[in-house]
Amino acid sequence: MRNIVRHRLFWPALALATLITVNSAARPQFLRVTMRDGELYGALIDILRNSAPLMLVALGMTIVIATRGIDLSVGAVMAVSGAVALTIIDGSSDPNGVGTVLIAVVTAIAVAMVLGVWNGLLVSVFGIQPIIATLVLMLAGRGAALLVTDGFITTVNSEPFAFIASGYLTVLPFAFFISVAAIASIAIVERRTALGMLTEAVGINPEASRLAGVRSRGIIWGAYVLSAVLAGIAGIIYASNIKAADANAAGLLIELYAILAVVLGGTSLQGGTFSLAGTVLGVLIIQTLNSTILFMGIPSAQSPVFFAVVVVVVVVIQSQKVRSWIRALGASGRNRRSAATTEVAS
């Protein structure tokens, strides 16, 4: 029992389970999944589908945070990538062609990658603080996206493009498969190679890692490129969902939700050891919470407050300090010494 409680995923998993329980008690249809024309529908399926953009962005954010960094530009990168993709489709003679859409998607991702290279350059080569370095793009990116779309909200009607966000592959939404593919490939690359361990080393102690011969520059740079590429894909999913490129609204505030997902998943903002599974849980918590807010009909003006309250509760319960206080209280109640806690730097 103790080991289960100690497990780093215990609290996020418990939070998600609680949310799901509360939801299914309040509305029994929450858990209901129906099959229509060989495709599954229901609130849970919606959560899996709608969480795809945040999932991608949060996975990238996890790796960036592990290197002691932060990437504020993800929302802007989403806007740019959506704008690039839609502009290409819009300008082509065959917006319904699969080839056109492929070209648009690949170009958009390539552009996002260039933006990631830029971020990584500022942070790892020029040594600019990550928060400042990525702020540049966060502010300039949306302007660039507007430039791409000439200041309009470009809309398109393209079957293959709309498929990315709303289509189904066999019985499940295509977007869900994108999430799964991203989770699986990142997990494999980080944990089957030594990249994850070296990333953690760089995040925990950059100077010790440098002395041990770790290529920290490359690792940090790579993290920003990965983050931007994933944001680029997220931008495409977002644009496909609304069938438009909206440079002002695409990915708005997503950087904050992504950071939140990472923290909810138990990865410390101080960098170092990270948990991809935790981030996945964090994203699902946020998405379920969003769905709850929608369902409960909380007026949109108050929904941020509700959101904040739930998040504060989860984060506080997870905090080591709070937990050791609770334990100390319990122990002194039983007139016993509390468990040993590790040394707190004075």
Partner: peptide, 11 residues
């Protein structure tokens, strides 16, 4: 750590 760093992240 140092040995792994020398081999490179991918190996």
């Amino acid at each position: 750590l140092a040995l792994q760093a020398q081999r490179g992240a991918l190996r």
